[in-house]
Design a protein around this nucleic acid. Structure first.
Length: 734
DNA sequence: CCTCTCGCATTTTTT
DNA sequence: ATGCGAGAGG
């Protein structure tokens, strides 16, 4: 039997409505856990079932992770016998734009084989730009200039538009740097992250042919996490969708957590104004979290003033009450989380169904230590960490220069790594030579001579370097050369060796060098993996290298999350967007941390912090553990911490507060004592245990059932459940 | 021109 | 605490 409808069994009315919607604009307001992914994937499947060719469908997400998950789930929905999904595009905004520019880049940036600059490349380029404007980079901080430029690009303001709007000295200067920065990027055949979007938007705006082609190709557009789109992304989406108007956006204003990066919440709030005939489907029912968790989340988010009130509810059982616990310091906090993790694991929750979330990456270290000490498998979601390593960046820069000789940023990075005797002076000379001849720096290297003021040694080193790059290029390119690289991994390996990177690390042989060497090895195997996964069998090593570099440029932290691995995931609250776990712990609920210190005095930012916390809470299916500390050591300094205001806002009869005595602080809050057979066990009480002997109470944890005490016995510190421990109070005899 | 050391900022979140 | 950049010595 041939079905013409998607399988909608078990869906709610609202879900069915979004799944079966075919033509015209659609806005799905999907609360947390409302089955958004199911709806989205079933809708795509339904479109295909209704006869929409898959290649007419474009689905855009924010992370690679979300894209691959969507792809997989769509695939699972579609009956392979009747319909395939060949040609279906599911992609992140950034990689979709990258691909668009790989096709039509010549029309807007003059090339299709550009390099994508990441944060550190951007910084380096901005620095050069600041210098080129005869400015001082201590007055004009690259990082802050960059964030202004980035903000502008996210609002579709290019250097010219920025200059036109600049009135005061400050913004006029920024405009100058912006211009110069753009010039550098273009002459390097490079684009930064924001350019991927900006240039694509401009291309679509200026080039009718491209616009028509994309409109024709992508007649059905779907955008996930729409609340996090910025102005530029909005414009791109609208260019594509304006003809057929089959645009479906899915999101939740309460989960908007990227305003700091230029996300414009009015995109989703004003969707119905933009598309007056839009069908709007609110999905409020939560299928993910148990009752108390939903209640906690709802209570918290209700404190946001600038928000349309909407009901969050679930029909699931009440479940476990979220636990809110305060601890003396971050180590105890980590221990407490670990204890909970182990307890749940013993009760049958697999590690991979657990996650620990925090506001800032810096918090991961203590947690990692605790996991390592306890031998509990964990995984820190930091996909970018590997590619941020110095040696890996160096190696990648070699590869980049190989595919793009104009990449001066890469050139600068590696010309003296490993040391070749090219210092500041030689570099300055080379810069002058390059600009006077209109060459890139690599090209200029070939012309360095003594006459031009180079030392013999420097000139020779520059020539050798130039020749080395030229040789690699031939080997990467040609198929008949005797020395030709057989594969991408081969190419990377040879480069690591011949560049001298490997040798320079082998020489000294410290522990750290060894680690760096291993990272280079890992890069080679990453290249090899990439090669294996590649679908294009016939691609040349150089072609593969191109793709590999793009992959490297666009990896994100959440890409490190591999659900097949049986490990607890540690990540930032931002990275947790879109994920769910049986058990979620959120650490560091302290004023200044969550909400972050930078948001404390700004209502708008404060609301975003609250949404961030909301996102964290709603990741949990069954168990939620929230903690704060009284003292926290950060950046080498121990400081007193205040419990987050969010704790009060979210707590109530639906939560359990556990308080813990500050072991360094002798004063004991009255509610922190436990009655036991008429006597009180409190901090400092001396107790006797029939097996462990006599010990002193260090800590008391109060909870509805199974209060625990921490006792220092001669044999070591033990955590005991009061009901079972059968402790006897020892009266000290004075 | 390289290497070592001291001083300083740095980190909120990410494609 | 750590990592990077500036400045001094080899």
């Amino acid at each position: 039997m041939r079905s013409t409808e998607a399988n909608v069994d078990g869906l709610t009315e609202a879900q069915v409505k979004s799944v079966t919607h075919v033509n015209g604009p659609l806005l799905v307001l999907a609360g947390p856990g409302s089955g958004k992914t199911t709806v989205v994937t079933k809708r795509i499947a339904n479109l295909v079932a209704q006869g929409v060719p898959p290649w007419n469908i474009l689905a855009l997400t924010f992370t690679n992770k979300a894209a691959s998950e969507m792809r997989e789930r769509v695939f699972a929905q579609i009956d392979p016998k009747t319909h395939g999904i060949r040609g279906l595009t599911v992609s992140t905004f950034h990689s979709f734009c990258a691909r668009t520019l790989r096709t039509w880049g010549e029309r807007i940036i003059g090339t299709r084989s550009f390099t994508i600059y990441g944060t550190s490349d951007q910084k380096s380029a901005v620095k050069t730009a600041i210098r080129a404007c005869d400015l001082n980079d201590s007055n004009w901080k690259p990082a802050s200039v960059l964030s202004i430029i980035s903000g502008a690009k996210n609002q579709l303001i290019d250097a010219e538009a920025f200059a036109a709007e600049a009135n005061d000295f400050h913004s006029k200067t920024i405009a100058k740097i912006y211009r110069s920065y753009e010039l550098i990027l273009r002459s390097n055949d490079a684009v930064d992250f924001d350019d991927l979007l900006l240039c694509t938007a401009q291309l679509l705006g200026r080039d009718e042919e491209v616009r028509n082609e994309l409109q024709q190709r992508y007649q059905y557009l779907l955008i996930d996490e729409y609340q996090d789109t910025n102005r530029t992304q909005f414009v791109i989406a609208n260019y594509i969708a304006s003809k057929h108007r089959n645009i479906c956006v899915v999101g939740d204003p309460d989960q908007s957590i990227y305003a700091w990066r230029g996300a414009d919440i009015s995109n989703i709030l004003d969707f119905e104004k933009q598309y007056e005939d839009a069908v709007i489907v609110p999905l409020g029912r939560n299928f993910r979290s148990t009752g108390y968790i939903v209640e906690t989340a709802a209570k918290l988010i209700a404190h946001n003033k600038f928000r349309k009130d909407k009901r969050l509810y679930t029909d699931l059982e009440k479940g476990n009450k979220p636990v809110i616990v305060t601890l003396p310091n971050e180590h105890e906090e980590a221990d407490t989380i670990l204890r909970e993790v182990k307890r749940l694991h013993n009760e049958g929750t697999p590690y991979k169904e657990m996650a620990v979330l925090y506001r800032v990456n810096a918090l991961s270290r203590v947690l990692e230590d605790a996991f390592r000490n306890e031998g509990v498998p964990y995984l820190v979601a930091r996909g970018t960490a590997f590619y941020d390593r110095r040696e890996v960046k160096d190696a990648v820069s070699y590869l980049r220069l190989l595919v793009n000789p104009k990449d001066d940023v890469a050139f600068r990075r590696i010309i003296n790594a490993p040391a070749r005797g090219i210092g500041k002076t030689s570099l300055l000379r080379l810069e002058q030579l390059a600009s006077s001849r209109g060459l890139n720096m690599l090209g200029a290297a070939a012309f360095a001579t003594k006459d031009l003021g180079f030392t013999a040694r420097a000139a020779k080193a520059l020539h050798t370097f130039h020749q080395m790059m030229a040789r690699w290029r031939i080997d990467a390119d040609s198929t008949q050369s005797l020395t030709a690289a057989a594969s991408l991994a081969d190419l990377v390996e040879r480069m690591v060796r011949e560049s001298g990177l490997e040798h320079s690390l082998n020489r000294i042989g410290t522990e750290e060098d060894l680690e760096r060497l291993q990272n280079l090895e890992e890069l080679i195997s990453a290249a090899s993996d990439f090669e294996e996964k590649s679908e294009d069998e016939s691609a040349s090593p150089l072609q593969l290298l191109f793709e590999f570099l793009e992959h490297v440029a666009l990896v994100s932290d959440s890409d490190a999350i591999d659900p097949r691995i049986g490990a607890v995931t540690l990540m930032t609250l931002h990275a947790a967007k879109g994920l769910e776990y049986d058990f979620v712990a959120i650490a560091g609920l302290e004023d200044g941390l969550l909400p972050h210190i930078r948001a404390l005095f700004d209502d708008t930012q404060m609301e975003e912090e609250r949404r961030l916390c909301f996102v964290g809470i709603t990741r949990a299916r069954k168990h939620l553990h929230i903690s704060s500390t009284l003292r926290r050591t950060q950046r080498g300094m121990t400081e007193r911490a205040m419990p987050s205001r969010f704790l009060c806002e979210m707590s109530g009869p639906h939560t359990i507060q556990e308080s813990v005595v500050d072991t360094w602080n002798t004063q004991v809050a009255p509610e922190l004592t436990l009655s036991k057979n008429g006597s009180e066990i409190t901090l400092g009480t001396v107790v006797r245990h029939k097996r462990f002997g006599v010990g002193k109470v260090q800590r008391v944890l109060r909870r509805e059932r199974g209060s625990t005490v921490t006792v220092d016995f001669p044999s070591g510190t033990k955590h005991l459940v009061l009901e079972y421990a059968n402790l006897e109070i020892v009266t000290p005899d004075f």
